[in-house]
Design a protein around this nucleic acid. Structure first.
Lengths: 346, 346
DNA sequence: CTGAAAGCGCTTACAG
DNA sequence: CTGAAAGCGCTTACAG
């Protein structure tokens, strides 16, 4: 029945510092801003004492005045692709090192992401990072209206607006086509995932255009619908519906490829790579597991994350950004066991 | 060269509302607190107009006074277990629905998590939720000193302090032992993961104690070291080092079990379940995939998350919590294809 | 180079 | 039931 619990939330404030050091709070405050005019030894005294008594400026009070929060919003949904959890942790760690904290907006269904974003916006994030999902134009505009530019990571905005960091997926698609064609494949197919995802359409375009450019018939398309194991599996089960069985296929990403291959082997009794070669995209950890050993186009993750952090810092500092979308060349095509060399030996 | 960019961060404030409605800011403010004394129609007028002009109280200004932030810190690391990404998204979504936002503290190595937590603490979270990693006593105390009680999800605190929500892992271990013994297994083994993780030691204890209680020799232990596919795989490769080959094994969790099984089959040529039966723990999505079809003890995820949210709300409201650690009975043992019935047919 | 003052957007005693 | 005032912990013109 006795609710109130005495928690000692007695925070150390500028006043304490000022009192201890016999200075004004203005002076104390200035010590924490490198660009502020203040005597070097005064600053040192403040900083030293602050460290000693464990003082840290209250970011809420700060942002009430500066209008910057050092908060980045991270929008996620679904996460059926194991590619993202790693991105999340690493990006968070990197951004934290740069002094910006991440606040999450999550929803299981992409449709419900909007209200999560709305709630997050309340905290006036300096910017938003969108992962593994999309934000419709209205939501993006709301973010921007609230002073938070949005960065789309990996998957770009459907309407082409907002900032973006992405692998050159068209080139990645071409690499996959070349790899297959160079090894004697003559009948290609592409397993597409979410049609609204830039990653999907770009990979498809690079793959198909290159195939045609090199004299092959346009690759057949199998539509998996979304980026998930289950979707890849279901797509694999429908392989026989194709007018002609392909000998080489590129899947929209690794997790789709893994599901696709299993459906072929367990469901249809079609052997990979003996009967058909399969290439994935991302190079997630699982792709290297003995059970899969998937040949795949690697994503240049380190570069993509570094670019994102750099972009985030520019945006947070409200600098002008010359280029809205950063394209990183795809990582290497990692050869494992799911592609067979079909050239006739001479 | 022209840095300053005119962003219209013109937020709607209480003043705007007060002016529009011809009231004082005090009255306007009260409208947002259900327990405040204010005329019903006054409140309605405020709320209506607020909705119309899109006013939302500034949480920073609020928490400067109330000392509550509606922020929960979420501490993650590693994430080599696919169990956690789902927990993260769903927990975030649930908590957001309850009006609390999640701020992330992440580090790739568990050792580096401390400074991430420190930075997060700056934002005065109402509570902390620890996922997939541990917080040493010092870090936990720092959180509590900053007014943020910490909840350990799934894996409990090593020192037994802090709040916790967890499956009854001892019982889960027993269930696995019973399942194996009931089906004629006579030589058991346990593949352990991180020895500092409560999940690991509890599952091991339940499993081993039950085996002994039912008259079997104590299960042999294979130490995988951590909760990851790679660790499980490496452990599997060492099966032959055991004095006696077991016929039934429980792995610390699913991802370890999956790695373990693959090592047996691909590396050692030992068939699962023909030669040895394997049980996992968690029932992650992957456990149901055709390539694995892992028999496993399911975690009661829904209940665990609901309990966490309830606990978080109590804690955020600074109510007294009678029970520090909540134990949820384990989910059912899901039978798939990795356990064989070894009873002699009669 | 430093300090006194104003103010960010709120909430909460205190009067009335 | 409502309003004027004080204050949360800061930063930032403005004087000096």
């Amino acid at each position: 029945m006795t609710h109130p619990k005495p928690i000692s939330r007695t925070r150390v404030t500028v006043k304490d510092l000022a009192r201890d050091l016999g200075m004004s709070v203005s002076t104390v405050s200035r010590a924490f801003y490198p660009e502020a005019v203040i005597a070097a030894d005064t600053r040192k005294a403040v900083l030293d004492h602050a460290a000693k008594i464990g003082y840290r400026p209250n970011p809420f009070a700060q942002s009430l005045i500066t209008k910057k929060t050092k908060i980045a919003g991270m929008v996620v949904s679904g996460l059926t692709n194991p590619f993202y959890p790693e991105v999340m942790t690493r990006l968070t760690a990197l951004l934290q090192q740069a002094g910006v904290n991440l606040m999450l907006a999550a929803a299981e269904q992409p449709e419900k992401i909007d209200e999560a974003v709305e709630l997050l916006l309340t905290y006036q994030p300096d910017l938003m990072i969108v992962l593994a999902t999309n934000l419709d134009s209205r939501a993006r505009e709301k973010c921007e209206a609230a002073g938070a530019p949005v960065i789309f990571f990996n998957r770009l905005s459907a309407d082409g607006l907002g900032y973006g960091v992405s692998c050159d997926n068209v080139e990645g698609g071409r690499m996959a086509a070349d790899h297959l064609i160079d090894r004697g494949h003559r009948s290609l197919a592409y397993v597409s995932a979410f049609p609204g995802a830039s990653t999907n359409v770009e990979r498809q375009r690079g793959f198909c255009d290159r195939a045609v450019a090199r004299g092959l018939p346009p690759p057949q398309i199998i539509d998996a619908g979304v980026f998930s194991y289950e979707a890849g599996y279901a797509a694999g089960l429908r392989l026989r519906e194709l007018p002609q069985q392909p000998d080489g296929v590129l899947c929209a990403n690794d997790i789709v490829a893994i599901g696709f291959i299993e459906a072929l082997q367990e469901g249809l009794g079609i052997s990979v790579p003996a009967d058909v070669s399969v290439i994935g995209y991302d190079d997630i950890a699982m792709a290297g597991w003995p059970s899969h050993r998937l040949t795949t186009v690697a994503q240049p993750l380190d570069e993509m994350m570094a670019a994102t952090v750099a972009l985030a810092r520019e945006l947070a500092a409200e600098r002008q950004i010359p280029q809205r979308v950063l394209r990183i060349p795809p990582g290497p095509l990692v050869e494992r066991r799911t592609v067979r060399d079909r050239r006739v030996q001479t």
